[in-house]
Design a protein around this nucleic acid. Structure first.
Lengths: 153, 153
DNA sequence: TTGTTTGCAAACCTTTTGCACGTTA
DNA sequence: TAACGTGCAAAAGGTTTGCAAACAA
């Protein structure tokens, strides 16, 4: 599911400038830590935890603090620029929210914790119908399928 | 009482004896704390956190420890007797897994944190189709719709 | 009796916050 | 220069674990 259609690839590439512009419009300043975190997020294919992002940045020689990672993720989440994903292990993971509205959901391996992405139009349609009939004003949704990944079987 | 309501009520009522039997079959012993937690879970209409269950039990005069709540939930979760629900606030919530396979999903208010349940057959069908086409051996799924509840609007 | 369960307290881990310093516009 | 951003360290939750006493079978 890594290589999808061209449109998806394009949207992936578009996230970094999109997020950068949104932050600038919101009147925030661009420091070194935040830029590095944004770049790291843009490079992800799926979700990552704050600790994972921090470790990856440290491994490349950065002296970035973990607090900056959390603060940046909180800022981005508040602006809807990243999506929070709960895989059931008590750790929050985040991934870029693509501007076109296209998104994916997750397959979580209950044995090894691996996370894989999938997309399904029929599922989105079903969700859309539910959203229309409930009392809530629905703004988003999260779906996780749990099971055993092919490597663990 | 309508037939449909009766059937649903029956499944709800069936959880406590079902879980009790499953635990006995697994060779566990039944202490006072665990029984109380089971009863509390059986009485829930939707999901509750360990802390909420603990507080409720303490409020009725019990001297139960929070560790027993966590240990019981872990045990039940490992046996598939409770389902873990992540509402996005970093707190794990649990609810009884009904033996018949019937289950619901959640509407989470992003403003006040309220959680409401819903069920949708078309959605289940869409999930089922996805489960058949992916590489994972899917054993379960979680769906959360986020939005603003009627009280917050 | 014998191994399980329990309550307490301490430990753990993720996440948040206070603060002084550095940096951006 | 005036805010804002950042790193560090401490604090704040939620959750897990060590342990000795209580308990079920």
């Amino acid at each position: 599911m890594a290589e999808r259609d061209h449109a998806h690839q394009h949207a992936t590439d578009a996230w970094l400038p999109h997020a950068t512009l949104a932050l600038r419009s919101a009147g925030t300043r661009s420091g070194g830590a935040r830029s590095a975190i944004l770049a790291e997020l843009a490079a992800q294919t799926c979700c990552a935890s704050a600790q994972e992002i921090h470790t990856r940045l440290r491994d490349t020689g950065s002296t970035i603090g973990i607090a900056s990672v959390y603060r940046t993720l909180e800022l981005l989440h508040g602006m809807g620029l990243v999506t929070r994903v709960d895989t059931g292990d008590g750790v929050a993971r985040f991934e870029p929210t693509h501007p076109g509205g296209e998104h994916h959901h997750h397959l979580v391996c209950t044995r090894c914790g691996a996370v894989e992405a999938f997309h399904d139009d029929a599922l989105e349609e079903a969700i859309h119908r539910v959203a229309e009939r409930v009392e809530f004003e629905v703004t988003g949704h999260d779906i996780a399928l749990r099971g055993i990944c092919s490597a663990c079987r």
